[in-house]
Write a protein that binds this DNA or RNA. Structure first.
Lengths: 208, 208
DNA sequence: AAATTCAGCGTACAAGTGTACACTGTTTTT
DNA sequence: AAAAACAGTGTACACTTGTACGCTGAATTT
């Protein structure tokens, strides 16, 4: 039994979420959205908002979850492409940049709320990023036989660099974005090389 | 002739700036500040605000400039300490972390406006960070005899990593901050090692 | 079939927003 | 000494904001 009522409720809930996502842009942050605006965009009376979320904050956290989901799709896509052949670093960065091009506003949401005024929001975003980092960490550790700590350092640095490049990419034209992509790839190679080196030094230290 | 009038005006302008800076905190961003609040905090009638800034945006950009100034003081301090002896990377990171501990709100301003909704703000913050990066780039190029491009890649990556760590540091207690500091130092060493390596490969390529 | 639940609506209100306008008193210029 | 400039004030207005409250009609439970 789905319940025609619960079904309809879920539908308008989605409308609210989509309305909020749809209002996000380079010049409009989630925190600048008002409950009334979102309700209006969703075709609802202001007060009906409360039937679904007790707060704009609650809606916002839902959006962050949504964004995390999108991020995980991104990872899956990257893994797929890597399995199909091609350099890991190159493929990952290209995939990430494509993601940003077609999901700019979702990415902006994450970037903004990561440094926002709500502890809860910051925690939620960091959780998503940590998940992202850990996946990469496991991969590096396994594929390159790295020490756990070194793998983490590399994964964390790589994610930081890629996110930062993504942030820059939001504000530049296609030509600059290509340059940025190439630079980012080189930076990740630098980091990989450094990690490899650090790992070797640790290994020989342990042997002695 | 300074003019008693211009002098007084400059003084209240400062009051506005300080009022704004004083209201910034972990849970209060510049964009959530209202003209009236700032004026009130400065002990002014709301409409008097306009005698000094045409806009909250104009005040905001002034704050970003102010923050950039603080950032440059930071660099000077770091250079001083490095000259007094001690590892470059270690000293720099420690100095940066101290800066964040005592200038958290200014740093938050930069972080937030970097991903904010105003193109002008983002540009202003990026300008300050670029300045920061370029200083480091010049240093690396000269001290380590690096290729210009490699030096830039390293400087950019290092600044990104350090800023990101700074951002994380804002939300954790002292113990975790120390861990974070150590990790950041190791990441910078990794990057330095990778840059050195990339530089060598470039050199031998050119020779052939 | 009757009773209950509940998504969505409309009204209403207090609080806060930016800023236009006319004013005052002191400093500066003429 | 007279005139002009101008930093700061107070009033006023049109808007937007979140949300409390009571209502309605359809879906659900009894």
């Amino acid at each position: 039994m789905v319940g025609i009522r619960a079904q309809q409720k879920e539908k308008t809930r989605r409308q609210l979420i989509d309305a909020a996502l749809g209002q996000l842009s380079a010049e409009r942050s989630f925190s600048s959205l008002s409950l009334r605006e979102v309700a209006k965009e969703a075709g609802l009376a202001p007060t009906s908002f409360y039937r679904h979320f007790s707060d704009m904050d609650e809606l916002g956290l839902t959006l962050v979850d949504e964004a995390g989901l999108t991020l995980r799709q991104l990872m899956r896509q990257a893994r797929q492409r890597i399995a199909d052949g091609g350099s890991v670093i190159h493929t990952s960065v290209i995939t990430f940049m494509e993601f940003i091009e077609s999901n700019g506003n979702i990415f902006r949401l994450l970037l903004r709320e990561r440094s926002g005024t709500s502890t809860e929001f910051r925690a939620a975003v960091n959780r998503e990023i940590r998940y992202f980092t850990m996946e990469l960490c496991d991969y590096l550790q396994q594929a390159n036989q790295l020490d756990a700590e070194v793998a983490y350092l590399q994964a964390n640095a790589a994610v930081t660099i890629v996110f930062s490049a993504g942030s820059d990419a939001l504000d530049v034209d296609k030509r600059e974005r290509e340059q940025l992509t190439e630079r980012t790839i080189n930076q990740l190679r630098m980091i990989a090389r450094g990690a490899f080196d650090l790992n070797n030094r640790l290994k020989s230290k342990r042997r002695s």
